[in-house]
């Protein structure tokens, strides 16, 4: 790997406070191009807050978010998304009344003249349609393409959400609990999809409670507790780290 490249994503000493409560304190984190990084920690550790800060839904109290070396910290959410950061949600947020197919069209940026956004889809946006077909096939959603996405089974809805995030060709994909509530086989399928997405050049940061899934998939893990980074390392190192065990067990006790 070329070490002169800036990290795909760098969080530089991010702090997020709500009133007087610190949800995140001095969090620094790197995702290198092509890496799959896991963000773990007990409930309320600040994982989803981290996602919200990265995507611009929350504004960091201090610190910087850098995408390929460019600061995106104070940009509005839609600009950050267009800059190349897409996400999925812990509690799936699909658009009601939209079919799977429409979900794959809606998130794509438009190239060329602005007027083309106003022209009927079938006359003007061949590239958009080609991209949607490609993603539809990648996520094996072809046989439900015209179904309203919200009527699909839970596992498929998660897939549609991932597919929607991917159609815009992001540089970084944030997955918030991608296998929550899934059985082993479904989780395996998602793992295979994530690996194939990485092969396509995508960098991935994911939150997940399923330890087996995280340990098998991620290159590195960051562990949060009460908004503070308590450990960072390869899965094997994290597994052996007593502080991590304490954080989980201490909470459980």
């Amino acid at each position: 790997m070329n070490t002169t490249l800036p990290p795909r994503l760098r969080l530089d000493r991010i702090t997020k406070a709500f009133g007087g409560v610190h949800a995140l304190t001095d969090l620094s984190l790197d995702v290198m191009p092509g890496q799959i990084i896991g963000l773990i920690g007990p409930n309320g550790a600040g994982k989803t807050t981290t996602f919200n800060v990265i995507t611009g839904a929350y504004r960091a109290s201090s610190g910087t978010v850098l995408l390929d070396g460019q600061a995106v910290t104070s940009e509005p959410p839609h600009k950050i998304a267009r800059a190349g950061i897409m996400r999925t949600f812990q509690n799936i947020r699909l658009f009601s009344d939209m079919t799977v197919w429409e979900h794959l069209l809606v998130a794509q940026p438009h190239s060329g003249l602005a007027v083309r956004r106003l022209l009927p889809m079938r006359f003007s946006n061949r590239k958009t349609i080609e991209r949607a077909e490609e993603v539809l096939e990648f996520f094996a959603l072809g046989n439900v393409r015209n179904r309203p996405a919200r009527t699909l089974p839970y596992g498929l809805q998660r897939r549609v959400e991932m597919a929607r995030a991917v159609t815009a060709r992001p540089r970084l994909l944030l997955l918030d609990e991608p296998v929550a509530g899934m059985n082993h086989d479904e989780a395996e399928a998602i793992r295979a999809l994530v690996l194939r997405l990485r092969q396509g050049g995508l960098s991935i940061l994911l939150i997940e409670h399923d330890m087996a899934f995280v340990m098998n998939l991620c290159d590195e893990l960051y562990v949060l507790d009460f908004g503070i980074l308590i450990a960072h390392g390869r899965p094997a190192e994290i597994r052996a780290n007593p502080a991590v065990l304490d954080a989980y067990l201490g909470r459980a006790a």
Binding site: T55, A57, P76, P77, H78, A81, R82, M86, R87, F89, R93, F95, S96, D97, M98, E102, L105, V106, A107, Q108, P109, H110, R116, R117, L118, L119, P120, M121, R122, N125, T128, R164, A165, A168
Partner: peptide, 22 residues
Amino acid sequence: ASPIWLEIRAVRDDETAAGLVG
């Protein structure tokens, strides 16, 4: 029938999610 109408439907349904998909 145009792409912008999909955007309009998305914004009407869930403004936050619409922003986060760009």
